[in-house]
Simulated assay, not measured.
Amino acid sequence: MSRPSPAIAPVPDEAPQPPAEGLSVQRIVAAAIAMADAEGLDGLSMRRVATRLGAGTMSLYRYVPGKDALIELMVDAVHGEERQAPPADAGWRVLLRYAARREWRLYSRHPWLLQTVATTRPPFGPNVLTELERTMQAMDGLGLAPVITHWVAIAVSAQVQGAALLLVSEVEEERRTGRTTLQWRADKMPAIREIIDTGQFPMLTRLLEEQDDVADIDAWFEFSLNRLLDGLAVFVESETRPPRTL
């Protein structure tokens, strides 16, 4: 699925940044995020972050207890990147779409983030909880039970995370093979067409005749998100409709 990929050039251990006036949690977290953006979480270590900062490894432990704690701080930091709020008078559908797109942009900028939050035990820092609260507030005033608004927030996030699996796998495959998805598709398309041209796949034949490149991941994400919101609209209407009087 073709789209611009985040920078994936490796961060060399041999080229540490000049040390500034002392370390801080913010500097450590920022360096770790930059490293994870470039290489993923597998190569992240306290030693490599220290080298990048021009510091000794043990000095980092004065600020961060270890790698797990560092990752939790990284997750919360990136969740606080976008400060702009949606219009105050927007309806629930606009607000949920806004929340979903904001989360989608997070995975676009930080592909490593998905594996840390798409779990039953995600990090819960203040920025993460702020995002959850904001998503739940989109349904405020509709008379829904708190557990339902929570489930709605989870459903929207799950929709984004499911789509982001493709987004992240694209980045990882490009990092692993050095080839873009467009290049991979160009290699595979002659064999695919040879199979389809047997006449056994009329629907796929029509698809390729109408649009050769159908793998726009952003357009597909918007389509799937809107269908989820359509379904929620039916649910909201049924839950908020006044009871019939006999």
Rank of each mutant, 00 (worst) to 15 (best):
V236T: 14
V128A: 10
A9G: 06
F201Y: 15
S238V: 13
L70D: 13
V147S: 14
L225Q: 14
T119W: 11
T135K: 05
W112I: 06
P243S: 00
Q159R: 12
T51S: 15
L44R: 13
L60D: 03
A55K: 07
P126V: 04
A7G: 12
L73Q: 13
R97L: 02
W104Y: 14
D42Q: 11
P122T: 15
L144I: 02
R102N: 08
S157P: 02
T120L: 15
P19N: 10
E237S: 07
A31K: 07
A163D: 12
S238Q: 15
R206H: 08
T51E: 03
V94C: 05
E170K: 01
L132S: 13
P126F: 01
E210S: 07
A153H: 04
M46F: 05
G143N: 03
A186Y: 08
R101M: 08
A155L: 15
Y61H: 12
N127L: 02
P16H: 07
R83F: 05
S224D: 14
I28V: 03
I28Y: 05
S59V: 00
R27Y: 09
Q161H: 13
P12L: 06
R52Y: 02
V11T: 11
I8L: 11
A20S: 12
L113Q: 03
S224E: 15
T198Y: 14
P16C: 06
V64D: 06
V214D: 04
Q183H: 12
L114K: 05
L73H: 07
A158H: 06
P123N: 09
Y98H: 15
T180I: 03
G80P: 01
R52T: 08
R52G: 15
A186C: 01
F235Y: 05
